[in-house]
Design a protein around this nucleic acid. Structure first.
Lengths: 197, 197
DNA sequence: AAAAAAAAATGAACTAGTTTAAGACTTTTA
DNA sequence: TAAAAGTCTTAAACTAGTTCATTTTTTTTT
């Protein structure tokens, strides 16, 4: 049986950094599980232990925490061809503080902790794949953590818009505010101001 | 010849995630270069291409950028047993926007781009080492990028103090302010306020 | 050990971003 | 398709953090 649709997408993603033989591809796909979530459904909630790391093949999800006042802080929007999950919980087996909620009907491929570990034994090349994947994520999170601290809200909005032109229109302004780190009211003001130019 | 001092420290750091044979240890150490920098000297300046990734065996350094107003934003303090550098520049070979400056006389071990790549060929286990190292850094940068956006300056200071009790006293208040993302004046106020309790 | 330079403290006037509240608009549910 | 729930806008009063200016304290240089 030939891989298709979602499978092709994840194999292409992996092929950015490592070459797999057809046999290895089969093996890899066999370690993944297909998951579907309806809009507004949760993939994970605070208190859960993260059972999977996810690759998104369709849709959009938001990853967020709630602070002690109950206000949400979004740490990422995950769309097609992105990886997501709570790595800390996934590798330590401790409860997560994150929620992952679909903002559209979505489809994912999940790898369980057991299979993630098995993967490194069976196809050691995946150490390299994840080494490079994490290295790249690290670069962008280092940048984001600097931006969060050093840029104004307006600058952060403009940066986001430039970096993710495809995502801006797919999420609510409220969620965008929770990502940028400001109130929805101030987000509204910024957007009015920026678009006026 | 037996490894000692700085060499022992880096081998111990690596041994957290992978086991090396004595021969592999020798090979690894042969790919590293010892570097010393005096207090206030630069290891890297904006415009340079990052030639090395560094492991600190002694001292303290600050990694920072300057914004368009010339204000510094510190992205990390690197002390003994920490890894640092500008990974984006190191792997893409493009000029960095970072400065790395010693805040104390410091000693480091550096690995060049060529040797970094050679390392993965000669001792593939290092893919695993870096996979785990980057995975862990990623977890802490994701947290930091959320904190930068969602916590008040006072909360960020308290969090820093709790996480790096050994570093707080080693850096100036001004540098701490540039790390937390506030003015030195406001940092001074926060410290007075927090210590008053 | 003195002079110079940098860091820290303090305060007053300012600005970016929050809070609260209310009305208009859009999407979801029954 | 009407009602309910959530989202967006606007505005006034507020607060966290900045800016600018001055003095004191600490560190560095000679």
């Amino acid at each position: 049986m030939k891989p298709e649709g979602p499978q092709l997408l994840i194999l292409k993603n992996v092929a950015r950094f490592i070459n797999l033989t057809p046999l290895e591809e089969q093996k890899y796909l066999s370690l993944l599980r297909e998951i579907k979530v309806k809009k507004r459904a949760f993939l994970m909630q605070a208190g859960d232990v993260a059972k999977y790391e996810y690759f998104i093949t369709k849709g959009c999800l938001k990853v967020y925490t709630l602070d002690d006042t109950g206000a949400p802080h979004i740490s990422m929007f995950a769309v097609e061809d992105y990886w997501t999950g709570d790595m800390a919980s996934f590798i330590t087996n401790k409860p997560t503080r994150y929620f992952i909620k679909a903002t559209e009907d979505s489809e994912l491929l999940g790898i369980s902790r057991a299979n993630y570990q098995l993967l490194f034994q069976e196809i050691p090349k995946f150490e390299r794949f994840y080494r490079i994947l994490y290295q790249r994520s690290l670069i962008s999170y280092i940048k984001r953590s600097n931006h969060g601290i050093s840029l104004s809200a307006e600058e952060r909005y403009i940066t986001f818009k430039k970096k993710y032109p495809n995502i801006v229109h797919r999420v609510t302004q409220k969620d965008l505010a929770a990502y940028i780190g400001i109130t929805p009211e101030f987000m509204s003001k910024i957007i009015t101001k920026v678009n006026r130019r």
